[in-house]
Amino acid sequence: MRNEDRNEEGRKPYYVSVQAGQILADPEAAAYELVINANDEEISRLHELFKELAAADNWGVRELAANPYNAISDEQRNSEYDSLLQRVYKQLYDCGTDTTKRHIESMQLW
């Protein structure tokens, strides 16, 4: 790895697709939306957030299928999912390049 690909905090560039829940080291491996510079700990936290996001999405679908008349409200489910999504974007913002930060700011999530 080239020295310019790492900064003083052990960070290196990653390419993130929130939609796919992917964090890529190679920008040509798949489509991505955002670029971040992160260390191993930050990437681990982001992986955990993506797992939580996927689990929340899957739980809502399973809950609705199993108990269509007794499921939590759409508003409650959406609120919990939105809160988790905001945590994902906060983590991405904290590690983001200037371009990524501007993009997230334009989304007006908080």
Results as ranks from 00 to 15, higher is better:
Gln76Cys: 00
Ala54Leu: 08
Ile72Lys: 10
Leu53Asp: 05
Leu49Arg: 08
Gln76Lys: 12
Tyr69Asp: 13
Ala56Thr: 13
Glu63Cys: 00
Pro68Trp: 12
Leu64Lys: 15
Ile43Ala: 08
Ala55Thr: 08
Asp74Glu: 09
Asn58Cys: 03
Asn67Ser: 06
Asn58Thr: 02
Leu53Thr: 07
Trp59Thr: 06
Lys51His: 06
Asp40Ile: 04
Gln76Asp: 12
Arg45Lys: 12
Pro68Glu: 11
Pro68Leu: 13
Glu52Val: 01
Glu42Asn: 05
Trp59Met: 03
Glu48Phe: 08
Arg45Trp: 02
Ala71His: 05
Leu64Asn: 07
Ala54Asn: 09
Phe50Cys: 04
Tyr69Ser: 08
Gln76Leu: 12
Tyr69Gly: 07
Leu53Cys: 02
Asn58Met: 11
Asp57Phe: 04
Ala71Asp: 01
Asp40Ala: 14
Leu49Met: 08
Ala54Gln: 13
Asp57Val: 01
Asn67Lys: 07
Lys51Gly: 06
Leu64Glu: 12
Arg77Lys: 08
Ala54Glu: 12
Asn70His: 05
Ala54His: 09
Glu48Leu: 14
Leu53Gln: 12
Leu64Thr: 10
Lys51Tyr: 04
Glu42Phe: 00
Leu64Val: 09
Glu48Lys: 15
Ile72Pro: 03
Val61Arg: 15
Lys51Phe: 11
Asp57Ile: 00
Val61Ile: 15
Glu75Asn: 02
Ala66Lys: 11
Gly60Asn: 14
Ala55Val: 07
Ser73Thr: 15
Arg62Leu: 14
His47Cys: 04
Arg45Asn: 11
Arg45Gly: 05
Asn67Arg: 09
Leu53Val: 00
Glu52Asp: 13
Ser44Gly: 09
Leu46Val: 06
Glu41Phe: 06
Leu64Asp: 06
Glu48Asp: 15
Asp74Val: 04
Leu53Arg: 15
Glu42Thr: 04
Arg45Cys: 02
Trp59Arg: 13
Asp40His: 05
Asp74Phe: 03
Arg77Cys: 06
Gln76Gly: 01
Asp57Met: 06
Leu46Tyr: 01
Ser44Tyr: 10
Ala54Asp: 13
Glu42Arg: 06
Asp57Lys: 10
Leu49Phe: 06
His47Pro: 01
Glu41Leu: 10
Phe50Ser: 04
Asp40Met: 00
Ala66Val: 03
Leu64Arg: 15
Leu64Met: 15
Ala56Lys: 08
Phe50Arg: 07
Glu75Val: 04
Ala65Arg: 15
Tyr69Glu: 13
Glu63Met: 14
Phe50Leu: 03
Leu46Met: 13
Leu53Tyr: 09
Glu52His: 09
Ala66Phe: 03
Phe50Tyr: 08
Glu42Leu: 02
Glu75Leu: 02
Ala71Gly: 01
Ser73Leu: 07
Glu42Asp: 07
Leu49Gly: 04
Ser44Cys: 05
Leu64Gly: 03
Ile72Leu: 07
Gln76Glu: 12
Asp74Trp: 04
Asn70Tyr: 05
Asn70Thr: 00
Tyr69Ile: 02
Ala55Gly: 03
Ala65Phe: 06
Leu49Glu: 07
Glu52Lys: 15
Tyr69Gln: 09
